[in-house]
């Protein structure tokens, strides 16, 4: 019984972390699906989302609003503001390089990542800063508090709702369909009158918004942020995207959750010393053995 309980504790802890990875991984995978670029500045978008929410929450806190209201407004502001960042980054760093060799935008992405980190150091601080404890307390979870804390519950529910919304959007909305069409064949989509530039911008905005939600959730959960939090989270999410099959939207979700669970079980049943070894070991193994990931479709190489 105790063993089973422990298993579920680790399971839900892993799901919580995994759902954050999944939210970030979606940004990698959406962008890769459309323009085959690994947007290495994406981890920084997640960090910027948390910082934006912190600033907004700080301002709203002065007016004495209830914390749940502050959280929602701050998260919405972060989503919009960071979406604008995503849009701008694409226009500045990637669009001019669209016809260039594939290495160029990759280098540009790494440059963007370094730029954004330093920008936050200069505009904010290089220290750790506190993020207000905004997640509401849910007394009805008291009984199962050891298995799933209140914050875990809120993170799981929010990220699941976000992912369902994204899936519906991609499947049924006009823009979603255009995104899928562009991902399948950009030339054909162009011929059919889809404005590829608009779709690419849209993809960056959506991907950034998802990362911002992840950033706000984890910052509100842990109560702290700094300029460097995007790096490890970004690498892990990238691993998750590759694990699920980069370019595949359900793949990123599955990859994130699987990675979160693997980490949780490794620490729980083996040792925390090996958490990162496992994650990046998985990345290497997947790249070597099954580059298309769990849900990715094997592409036929046209020679």
């Amino acid at each position: 019984m105790e063993q089973l309980l422990y298993f579920f504790e680790l399971f839900f802890g892993g799901l919580t972390r995994g759902s954050i990875y999944a939210l970030i991984a979606l940004g990698y995978t959406l962008v890769y699906g459309i323009i085959e670029l690994i947007n290495f500045a994406h981890g920084e978008i997640y960090m910027l989302g948390a910082f934006t929410a912190m600033v907004v929450a700080g301002v709203l806190g002065v007016y004495g609003l209830p914390s749940a209201a502050i959280l929602i407004i701050a998260a919405l502001c972060a989503v919009v503001w960071v979406g604008a960042y995503g849009f701008t980054i694409e226009k500045i760093a990637y669009k001019p390089l669209r016809g260039a060799p594939r290495l160029s935008p990759l280098i540009s992405a790494i440059g963007m990542s370094i730029f954004l980190q330093n920008y936050v150091i200069l505009a904010q601080t290089s220290d750790f800063v506190s993020f207000p404890q905004l997640l509401p307390e849910l007394p009805f979870l008291e009984k199962i508090g050891s298995i799933m804390g209140e914050s875990d519950f809120i993170i799981l529910v929010t990220s699941t709702a976000t992912m369902i919304a994204l899936t519906l959007f991609i499947r049924y909305s006009k823009t979603g369909k255009a995104m899928r069409a562009t991902a399948q064949n950009r030339t054909m989509a162009l011929l059919l009158g889809i404005d590829a530039n608009k779709i690419i911008s849209m993809t960056f905005i959506i991907g950034s918004a998802l990362a911002a939600i992840g950033g706000v959730l984890i910052a509100a959960h842990m109560g702290q942020i700094n300029f460097a939090i995007g790096f490890l989270a970004g690498m892990k999410a990238f691993t998750a995207a590759v694990l699920g099959g980069i370019g595949s939207v359900p793949g990123a979700m599955v990859g994130g959750l699987v990675l979160g669970l693997c980490e949780s079980f490794t620490t729980g049943y083996f040792s925390g010393d090996y958490e990162d070894v496992l994650s990046f070991g998985i990345l290497v193994l997947i790249l070597v053995l099954r580059p298309d990931g769990i849900l990715g479709k094997a592409k036929v190489q046209k020679v």
Binding site: Y6, E9, L10, G13, G14, T16, R17, I20, D152, I218, H221, M222, A228, I229, F231, L232, A233, E263, S264, F265, T266, T267, G268, S271, G272, D273, E275, D276
Partner: peptide, 14 residues
């Protein structure tokens, strides 16, 4: 050991 940069320490706490 934990990685101080990990998003949370839920597993090790459990």
């Amino acid at each position: 050991a934990i990685n101080p940069d990990a998003p949370d320490f839920s597993a090790v706490v459990k």
